[in-house]
Simulated scan of single mutants.
Amino acid sequence: MGGLMTFRSETLDKTQNQIGQLAVSLSSAFNAQHKLGVDLNGEQGEDFFAVRTPQSYGHKGNSDPDLLTSVAFDPETVGKLRATDYTVSFDENLDPVVTRNDNGQVLSGTDPKDADFVDTSGWTPGTGLGEITFGGVTLSFSGNNVAVGDTFEIQPVRRAGAGMEVKIADVDKIAAGDAGFDGEGASPLNSFKSTGNLDVSDLQTSHTAFADNKNYELKVDGTGKLTVIPPTAFTVAGTSYASDATDVEVDVGETVVIDGFSFTLDARPATGDTATLNVSQRIISATGDNRNALALQNLQAKSIVGASATVTGAYASMVSDVGNRTNITQVNLDARQGLTDQLHAVQQSESGVNLDEEAANLIRYQQYYQANARVIDTAGTLMDTILNLRG
């Protein structure tokens, strides 16, 4: 039983996490690149792979069983995924304490780029609510407040490999063509078209543009008041506004970002006038275009696993690790078997039964019996002879 538990904790869990890390890293990178392409129907690529979400378990002694509402992969920090589980607890100030289960290290990085950095910008210690991001995952707590000592085990990638599957069955939906997003792959093509009389500059898109809607109409009056149709959340000069925000004014020179595209206002309309800007997504036909397919192929040479290893390199490292552990286990087994045989021989020499020795003793005792029987027989004959002489 002890051997099985040791195998599980030192080999099985670690290997499952390594396979899961490989699956999530490959799926995330492949999906992100696939979305930069366009399929034969002229539609932007979708997620190619589905992967199992991170698993979480609350301690049975927690103040409430429903404190942790969701655990999800964070696309922005997926490169920080590591092949390990985590324990999350809360100190006397309700600040999260995140510990790696494989080596007991407490995550305490101060640089957001560090793998051991815990992002608590969305966490409110006073209320014990909010979001915590670390190791490529985001934990959301809502409802009841967490209490001191509440503990959770987070398994980001433990069984992710078993949940990895292909989402696209129709080959026409494989986004092999280059969608022409600005700034992506040095493509000279545009991903949008615009019309209108609003005086703007630096109109551009990112690869995530038009996720909510394919067409937008923007209106700016003489006071700089901005109206977005259909209503969508946006930012002006770095300040975020909800989709239902009204009376938001844009000054000349400020940058507006809406659903992945952005522009800078160069001039306001004259007083009493309203200028418009229509922006819509324009996907280029992918017939005969395989540039995104080549980009997908090139992922095999990129360090996408833990931001430090290629898929092939990570897989080879995992196989080597399992092979080394198997060899060590076999050597230990042989050594323990030799020791077992020695102990068995010692035990048998002290209290065991040697069949050869017992057979020899049995023959010797039989010979003793036969000799004694002849002595008795001879004594009887002598007594009879003596008695006959007297008669």
Rank of each mutant, 00 (worst) to 15 (best):
Asn17Ser: 06
Ala23Gln: 04
Val38Thr: 04
Val38Lys: 00
Gln44Arg: 14
Phe48Gly: 01
Val51Tyr: 00
Thr53Asp: 13
Gly61Phe: 07
Ser63Tyr: 01
Leu67Asp: 05
Leu67Met: 13
Thr69Pro: 07
Asp74Lys: 01
Val78Pro: 09
Lys80Ser: 11
Val88Tyr: 03
Val97Pro: 03
Gln105Lys: 15
Leu107Trp: 06
Lys113Trp: 02
Ala115Pro: 09
Gly122Thr: 09
Gly122Asp: 12
Thr133Ile: 00
Asn145Phe: 09
Gly149Leu: 06
Glu153Arg: 15
Arg159Phe: 07
Ala162Lys: 12
Lys167Met: 14
Ile168Phe: 03
Asp172Cys: 10
Asp172Met: 11
Lys173Arg: 15
Gly183Tyr: 13
Pro188Met: 08
Leu203Ile: 14
Ala209Met: 06
Ala211Gln: 13
Asn213Glu: 07
Glu217Val: 15
Leu218Glu: 06
Lys219Leu: 04
Pro230Arg: 06
Ala245Ile: 07
Val248Cys: 02
Glu249Lys: 06
Val252Glu: 07
Thr255Asp: 12
Gly260Lys: 05
Phe261Gln: 06
Phe263His: 11
Thr264Glu: 11
Ala267Thr: 00
Asp289Arg: 03
Arg291Glu: 06
Leu296Gly: 09
Lys302Leu: 12
Gly306Gln: 02
Thr312Val: 09
Ala316Arg: 14
Ser317Met: 07
Val319Arg: 14
Thr326His: 12
Asp334Arg: 13
Val346Met: 13
Gly352Met: 05
Asn354Trp: 02
Asp356Ala: 10
Arg364Pro: 00
Asn388Leu: 05
